[in-house]
Design a protein around this nucleic acid. Structure first.
Length: 437
RNA sequence: CGGGGUGUAGCGCAGCCUGGUAGCGCAUCUGCUUUGGGAGCAGAGGGUCGGCGGUUCGAAUCCGUCCACCCCGACCA
């Protein structure tokens, strides 16, 4: 992508409404624009990251055997009256009337709809287990939206719903998602810790929330230091096997938020205890027949008798994750994107667009990196070097190739690792080879 | 929803207390010079001062009212 014709409206000053670092950088890097309180437009850079996060979530869901569907944002109230939640959900639910005066709502979640789909088509235990997910915008009319996309009213969420014949099967489905979640966050370069959680308005009796560690997170977290060193990607896990021991191996390791942590009664030795902060980015629930009972999600079991299916639901806040990743990965110059979610992998900076040699080298780099399948953003704007370098640091692409007349006099360009700040001079050919590797 | 605060040019702000018809920095446009970490000079454009009502000869400024947004709290992916 050529920046001269692209749309990244960066800001030099921080808009005053933005307090936390992810919100400030998302506005300054031209990723989002607030439309009203807790509601955002996603501009090209933000949109690219959102889609990358979404795609990683999708791939891990598919790998775990879930099937993607897409349910609407607007739902009819009558289904929610059947489950009893039309009354229970309260002011958080945005209620709408259509032109006929029928009660509608902008979905805050989808248990009712997915159960309706299930009950319409599934009659036998032979169709189980079944796990359906979708990635869709939700609306919860928060009392106080804040922190930019981290706590918006409208947000993009992956939510899925498992259907099993009995409790035992439901726990298998739950454990699968538990592992899938850890893999999902690890792929985004995040450290995520599952913690036992309250179930809130979703209900149920088994629930974990997943907290990603970030120094600027919303809540204080206490955990065993093994959480920081263990990478689930180094384990080989048979997703079709018995996952209970694997899940247990994670859960026996201490982790608690400040409201549950008791310093005087902590099972972890002080030298092994890590105190940091975190952001909730996912939540999984097992709630049995809470919705299948009232909504008639029933199947015939092996003995021919009809039983209500056991369900679980599993959410990942995708738009929130974009903010959480920035909270977990930034410095005082701007964002530092982990490669898997970076809007572009490499930024080529032409320091002197008026210089033929610079422009030729940049165009070659751009073409060759592109041909190697690398997503490249080239800053070919006629701007001051300082402004271009500052913008490139701000938008946080993992790699920068800085091309200027000074280096080219000795035939080299500068390759910079955004995370470490380390720079290395090399020929353009060597830079291409390095970044394409 | 309780408490606090802010709305003045695209962004950040001053002016308001003590009424006299709007200003600064950055950004934008033009020209010249400059070119490795947010340039210099010269010129230009851009604002129904959040909306409505009131007081006054006169309101960004005083009064009333409504709206929007932000922060703290209780609640949440």
């Amino acid at each position: 992508m050529r920046l001269s014709g692209y749309f990244i409206p960066t800001l030099r000053d921080t808009p005053k409404e933005a307090q936390i670092v992810s919100h400030r950088y998302m506005l300054r890097a031209g990723m989002v624009q607030q439309a009203s309180a807790g509601i955002y437009s996603w501009l090209p850079m933000g949109h690219r990251v959102l889609r990358k996060v979404e795609q990683i979530v999708r791939e891990e869901q598919n790998a775990a055997g879930a099937h993607e569907i897409l349910m609407p944002t607007i739902q009819a109230a009558d289904l929610w009256e059947q489950s009893g939640r039309y009354h229970d959900y309260g002011a958080e639910m945005l209620r709408i009337k259509d032109r006929h005066g029928r009660d509608m709502l902008y979905g805050p979640t989808n248990e009712e709809l997915v159960t309706d789909i299930f009950r319409s088509h599934v009659r036998s235990y032979r169709s189980l287990p079944l796990n359906l997910y979708h990635i869709q915008w939700k609306f919860r009319d928060e009392m106080r939206p804040r922190f930019g996309v981290m706590r918006g009213r409208e947000f993009l969420m992956k939510d899925n719903y498992s259907f099993d014949l009995d409790h035992e099967g439901a726990i298998r489905s739950y454990n699968k998602m538990f592992i899938a979640y850890l893999k999902t966050y690890a792929r985004m370069g995040l450290r995520a810790i599952p913690m036992a959680a309250e179930t809130g308005p979703i209900g149920g009796d088994l629930s974990h929330e997943f907290i990603v560690l970030a120094e600027t997170g919303e809540s204080e977290v206490f955990c065993h230091r093994d959480w920081l060193t263990d990478d689930i990607r180094n384990r080989s896990i048979d997703m079709e096997g018995d996952l209970q021991p694997v899940v247990d191996s994670f859960l026996e390791r201490y982790a608690a938020t400040d409201d549950k942590h008791d310093p005087s009664n902590c099972p972890v030795a002080p030298e092994d205890l890590v105190v940091t902060r975190g952001i909730e980015v996912g939540h999984i629930f097992y709630f049995g027949t809470k919705y299948s009972d009232p909504l008639g999600g029933r199947v015939a079991g092996p003995d021919g008798r009809e039983v209500a299916v056991h369900m679980g639901s599993y959410g990942i806040g995708i738009s929130r994750l974009v903010g959480a990743i920035i909270e977990a990965s930034h410095d005082d110059r701007g964002i530092i994107w982990p490669e898997p979610v970076a809007p572009f992998r490499v930024g080529v900076v032409n320091l002197a667009v008026g210089n033929e040699e610079c422009t030729r080298v940049c165009d070659d780099l751009y073409a060759q990196l592109g041909a190697a399948g690398i997503e490249v953003l080239i800053d070919d704007r006629d701007e001051r070097p300082g402004a271009k370098l500052a913008d490139m640091d701000l938008i946080g692409l993992p790699w920068q190739v800085i091309v200027g007349p000074r280096g080219l006099r000795s035939g080299v360009v500068e390759v910079k690792d955004r995370r470490t700040g380390a720079t290395e001079e090399m020929t353009p050919e060597a830079a291409t080879a390095r970044l394409a590797a």
